[in-house]
């Protein structure tokens, strides 16, 4: 019992330590590739590999950290409430942008998969990669894909989104903070939103909002597609 507790605590501390180190490095060098989420994950993966520790052992501490994710999404209501007037005022551009993003996601996944000659079963599992995990699993089940592939795709997409967000916004010359947040949240759900929150209060609020809206609209689209086919 005490041993179990010690193991759990050890891996939590390992995760916190690697996050602090990564964050310090990121602040020092400011390279997007040194994104703290990616860097600390890589650091932990390397440690697990060197000492031959299975993921299931690490995850004894990991699940404790992951269990905060649910309440964290609830908390996203706070920046949304603080920016309520601006978000409500831009209701049409926000929904319009999200619908454009969802269509871009469908088209780009199918197009790229066809280009690289990827199996149809994988295509169906990648379609919903931009939305939050529970909803993505639901979407993949409706399409008849493999939901374990979806879970990985969602995790990878979130990490990629957090890394590329500053570059897409800079080189894409995105002007308004709301547009920045909506883009990040629509492309890369909650993990991307963690980056958006860092970039600014209004960006975080818009990104949090788009997690919910993108999830719902994507599911509705898939229901519609299923009905038509």
């Amino acid at each position: 019992m005490i041993k179990e507790l010690a193991i759990t605590l050890f891996y939590i501390i390992l995760t916190i330590t690697s996050y602090i180190i990564s964050d310090k490095l990121y602040i020092k060098f400011k390279w997007p590739i040194l994104n703290p989420l990616l860097l600390s994950s890589c650091l932990i993966i390397i440690i697990l590999m060197i000492f031959n520790i299975p993921y299931s052992t690490y995850n004894k501490g990991g699940v404790v950290i992951t269990s905060i994710l649910g309440p964290l999404v609830v908390i996203l209501a706070i920046p949304m409430y603080r920016n309520r007037y601006n978000l409500l005022k831009n209701f049409i551009p926000i929904v319009g942008g999200i619908i454009a993003g969802i269509l871009a996601s469908f088209v780009s996944v199918i197009g790229l998969c066809k280009l690289f000659k990827v199996d149809n079963s994988i295509i169906l599992s990648l379609i919903s990669k931009s939305i939050t995990t529970p909803m993505a699993i639901e979407a993949t089940n409706m399409l008849g894909g493999n939901s374990s592939i979806t879970i990985i795709a969602v995790a990878i997409t979130g990490t990629i989104g957090a890394i590329i967000a500053p570059m897409v916004i800079k080189y894409g010359k995105i002007k308004s903070d709301i547009a920045k947040g909506i883009g990040i949240g629509t492309a890369s759900h909650a993990a991307g939103t963690s980056k958006a929150v860092e970039m600014g209060e209004e960006i975080g609020a818009a990104s949090g909002l788009s997690i919910a809206v993108t999830g719902i609209i994507t599911i509705l689209f898939i229901i519609l597609i299923n009905k038509l086919m």
């Binding site: 703290p36 989420l37 994950s41 993966i45 690490y58 950290i65 992951t66 994710l69 920046p79 963690s194």
Partner: peptide
């Protein structure tokens, strides 16, 4: 919690090595 939101995604990202 929002300030350190990225931190809470680490175990999921590490999980990619298994899945």
């Amino acid at each position: 919690l929002l300030k350190y939101m990225g931190f809470f995604f680490i175990p999921l990202t590490v999980g990619i090595i298994e899945t």
